[in-house]
Nucleic acid binder design. Structure first.
Length: 892
DNA sequence: CATCCGACACAGA
DNA sequence: TCTGTGTCGGATG
């Protein structure tokens, strides 16, 4: 059962009259326990409770009925129970039917709520079903504030220095911002003496910033030279530290300041940069400096919560568990300390280094924890040594030079902050300047470069973790160079490799890197790689030769602090060599354990549903709608239709009703010009049609698609006039909302044309509607078809042609037809409500809901002799039938 | 020739 | 500016 099903089941209990003797078993049922388990519990054989009327299921929950208004005391009794101590339930529940008092004994978390809100608080009870709540990390508000101030400064400087906007000066601007931030940071954390840089700027920069540029240039120049070599610079520069490390080498320049820009510079100096998060600050500079190019490579910085979605399950959680286990034994703690120095993290698309910085910081934190504990356990305090985690353990590849430079700087700042924390705890800190060489950041094309050269494979005790967020690009968005890179990586290994997302190249290279090595990988990806056609195209190749998915985050919305967020749904797929270790699935803030994680990220066997051009279960032929590719000129609003008809009434026979998804779902009226080749000459004689044909021809002639240009020769026709009904048809919208309980489908007469936003069954039996509008079908489509973000995306080849049905008898087909007509009739009784109105999840009419329930019960009984209990059971059965059918076909 | 997709696109609160 | 929900036509095998 998934969390929603558990919530529903708990809600049923909450809404029913309370029965103290029955509650424990009902709760066991609602939290996904097998019938046999509940039967044994009921018989008393496995009920371990030592409380009156209590039910205790080993390791799951301990329930006891409470006297009226006495839930707190009953909860206390549950807490104190000897049996609670031995059977280790994850939930304690006391209720009198009015109030509930519940507790997680491990964390001490408690819940008090009215009984009828049991379903609302389902998340609290999920641990009883083996699902844990998952805590996501939060964003740092200081970063948000700093990026706002920097953006203001940047804009002001751009107003004063319009020439810096040009592409050839962009690098100078980026460099200036990096150096400035380094100085602001350094004077706040003690690398420079306090306020050294800003003091110089505001002492010598003039009242209104008129000398600010010269002052800053002098300061930067000084930092690039040893202290004795600054005789040509102003005397005040003598005390600046020699920074080096590459940051101040090369051209040194600064923009001019006006009073406004100078004021914003002061604002930036006033910020407390000590608290800045180096995790993402490089990305912020980039997004500030290049607001037009945020969607380009490297501009999509990953927020810390999302980075932790990767690093936590990839290796930090395991590390924590190992440290906990070693907690009381010095030798075991030392082993973990050694382990820290042998962990390497590799981000093959590192941008400005966010993942590496966070990983570094997390390792240093754990090291401090270990050393502190060792200090407590061992008498000799000299055992507290210097950090053994070095920046050299961090490897990255980044294609743009500025981002690569920023990554090095960010790692340096992270190192400084970790050292400062170390000094807080142990009272020691090393010299910080001149900058030492940082992480192994290589500026190169990650898809062309040999990864083993950048991050040598692990030897002996070493562990390598590949993490990151490579770019996502679908086949319509890639440049010719990117397609070449993709061919270079994937051609010869995957069929149809150009069909899948660019990010797949990184997944493929990561899989090859880690196979048979002490290494794991987890990359943030677009969710489309785990849906529809991508599943069969990519994953069989990835998951062969000993790899498996060790953890996965199901679809989550992309979010960061950038002003305009990218709109995309992401997943994280954790790859590893096959082990017996637990497998974890994350969905929203919920975590559960899975027996297997397949490429759809479902807890099910490794199934790859393959597209088929005809139904493998002998269902009628479903076709793609008619695709205009007309630049909008063959499609008509009702108003446009009337305009044409008023100019040329003879055009009437050439205009038909047209329906796409929006028309089916929202009852919108739309028309199209529909002219056969034989009619073309007559139709072109009518001026309003001729004008539109000319516009279509022009649009098509300038298309960059090979299939479209020739269609300029027949502008009266759709590019793909696929098919249409003789008598009647069923239209199925391809894209539709994920919130409706059933898929939209409409029955139409032959005078309506389907656009390519619909799939169609022409002149097919009406029982097809009974199937497509069923719960079984929407569950199947949701599992095996692609999605538009999280919307349903219906597919004939992957959804309909693969949909398993039993062999129906003629009598059963009659029953399904009758059920389909009942649904249609019920809908018509609510005329003029649209499908969107009728299937509003919060406002579906009772009679329609009833018609669908009867339809589902009827259909499902034909599969297993009774209705299914829940969607998990539905999907299990469908997968089983599909696998059996594929096996039998393959055997022939 | 017929799809499958979109670091989306766009309307309406 | 955010939320809800489906257009449209290129690129692909």
């Amino acid at each position: 059962m998934n969390p929603t099903e558990i919530a529903d089941a708990l809600d049923v209990i909450a809404k029913a009259p309370f029965d103290a003797a029955e509650f424990g078993y009902a709760f066991a049922d609602a939290t996904d326990n097998a019938r046999a388990t509940i039967a044994k519990l009921r018989s008393g054989a496995t009920n371990k409770s030592d409380l009156n009327g209590g039910v205790l299921l080993n390791r799951k929950f301990h329930y006891a009925p409470a006297l009226p208004s006495d839930t707190a005391q009953t909860l206390a009794a549950l807490r104190a129970s000897k049996k609670t101590a031995s059977a280790k339930p994850v939930i304690l529940i006391a209720t009198d039917g009015q109030m509930i008092a519940a507790e997680h004994p491990k964390s001490g978390d408690t819940l008090h709520c009215p009984f009828n809100e049991l379903g609302t608080h389902f998340a609290f009870f999920l641990p009883a079903a083996g699902k844990d709540r998952y805590q996501a990390a939060e964003e740092n508000p200081v970063d948000v504030k700093a990026s706002g101030k920097l953006a203001k400064l940047y804009d002001a400087m751009m107003r004063v220095n319009p020439d810096w906007k040009q592409a050839e000066r962009r690098h100078d601007m980026n460099l200036f911002m990096t150096r400035l931030i380094f100085c602001l940071f350094s004077e706040d954390v003690g690398i420079f003496t306090q306020h050294q840089f800003s003091h110089a700027v505001f002492s010598y920069g003039g009242n209104k910033g008129e000398h600010a540029r010269d002052t800053i240039v002098s300061a930067f120049a000084a930092m690039n030279r040893p202290k004795g070599e600054r005789s040509d610079l102003p005397a005040w520069t003598a005390n600046f530290e020699y920074v080096n490390g590459g940051l101040f080498t090369g051209t040194i320049d600064a923009p001019d300041f006006d009073p406004v820009a100078f004021r914003y510079l002061r604002d930036c100096c006033d910020l407390d940069w000590k608290l800045i998060n180096p995790d993402i600050f490089g990305s912020m500079i980039q997004s500030i400096a290049d607001p037009d190019a945020r969607s380009e490579l490297g501009m999509h910085y990953t927020s810390v919560p999302n980075i932790m979605k990767v690093l936590g399950p990839l290796f930090l959680d395991d590390l924590d568990a190992a440290i906990d286990k070693a907690w009381d034994k010095a030798s075991a703690l030392r082993a973990q300390l050694t382990r820290l120095s042998k962990i390497r993290v590799f981000d093959p698309a590192c941008g400005s280094g966010n993942f590496l910085v966070v990983a570094y910081r997390e390792l240093r934190e754990r090291e401090i924890r270990l050393l502190k504990r060792l200090g407590e356990l061992e008498a000799n305090p000299q055992n507290v040594m210097w950090s053994s985690v070095s920046l050299g353990q961090f490897h990255g590849i980044e294609i743009t030079d500025f981002a690569a430079e920023t990554a090095k700087l960010a790692l340096f700042i992270a190192e400084y902050q970790a050292n400062a924390r170390f000094a807080d705890v142990f009272g020691r800190m090393p010299a910080l300047l001149p900058l030492r060489d940082g992480g192994h950041i290589v500026c190169d094309n990650s898809l062309r470069r040999d990864w083993e050269e950048v991050c040598p494979p692990p030897v002996a005790e070493e562990e390598v973790y590949i993490a990151g967020n490579p770019p996502f690009l679908g086949d319509n968005a890639r440049s010719p160079e990117q397609n070449n890179d993709m061919d270079f990586v994937l051609a010869g290994h995957l069929d149809a490799h150009r069909r899948i997302d660019f990010v797949s190249c990184w997944i493929f290279k990561a899989a090859n890197y880690l196979r048979n090595r002490n290494a794991k990988s987890a990359l943030v990806s677009t969710n489309s790689i785990c849906q529809g056609q991508s599943v069969g195209a990519l994953w069989p190749e990835i998951l062969k030769n000993g790899l498996e998915i060790g953890f996965a985050h199901r679809s989550f919305k992309w979010r960061n602090n950038a002003a305009s967020n990218a709109t995309v749904m992401c997943v994280v797929v954790g790859l590893r060599n096959i082990t017996k270790d637990r497998k974890r699935v994350f969905e929203g803030d919920l975590e559960s354990e899975a027996a297997n994680i397949n490429a759809y990220l479902l807890d099910a066997s490794d199934i790859f549903v393959e597209a088929s051009s005809r139904s493998i279960f002998n269902l009628p032929y479903m076709e793609y709608g008619n695709k205009p590719t007309d630049g909008g000129h063959l499609l008509l609003t009702p108003t446009e239709r009337l305009e044409i008809l008023s100019r040329s009434p003879e055009a009437a026979p050439y205009i038909k009703r047209l329906m796409g998804s929006d028309e089916v779902i929202n009852g919108i009226e739309r028309y199209c010009i529909w002219v056969t080749d034989e009619e073309a000459t007559n139709a072109s004689a009518l001026p309003p049609l001729k004008e539109r044909f000319d516009a279509v021809a022009k649009f098509r002639a300038s298309s960059k698609a090979a299939q479209t240009r020739p269609a300029a020769a027949y502008p009266h026709r759709f590019r793909q006039a696929q098919n249409w009904a003789r008598e009647q048809a069923l239209f199925i919208p391809i894209h539709s909302s994920e919130n409706r309980p059933f898929l939209p489908i409409e029955w139409v007469k032959s005078d309506v044309i389907a656009s390519n936003a619909n799939l169609a069954l022409y002149d097919s039996p009406i029982w097809c509607l009974s199937i497509i509008a069923s719960r079984l079908h929407i569950v199947w489509i949701g599992a095996v078809c692609g999605k538009l973000e999280t919307r349903y995306r219906y597919s004939n080849t992957m959804g309909w042609n693969t949909f398993p049905v039993p062999k129906f008898t003629p009598d059963q087909l009659d029953q399904l037809s009758a059920s389909a007509r009942r649904i249609l009739k019920t809908r018509y009784q609510h005329y003029p409500k649209t499908i969107a109105d009728l299937y509003d999840p919060d406002d579906m009419p009772d009679d329609l809901r009833q018609a669908h329930r009867e339809n589902d019960d009827l259909l499902e009984t034909m599969y297993i002799g009774r209705p299914f209990r829940n969607d998990t059971e539905r999907l299990e059965k469908l997968f089983k039938l599909y696998a059996a059918k594929v096996a039998s076909k393959g055997g022939k």
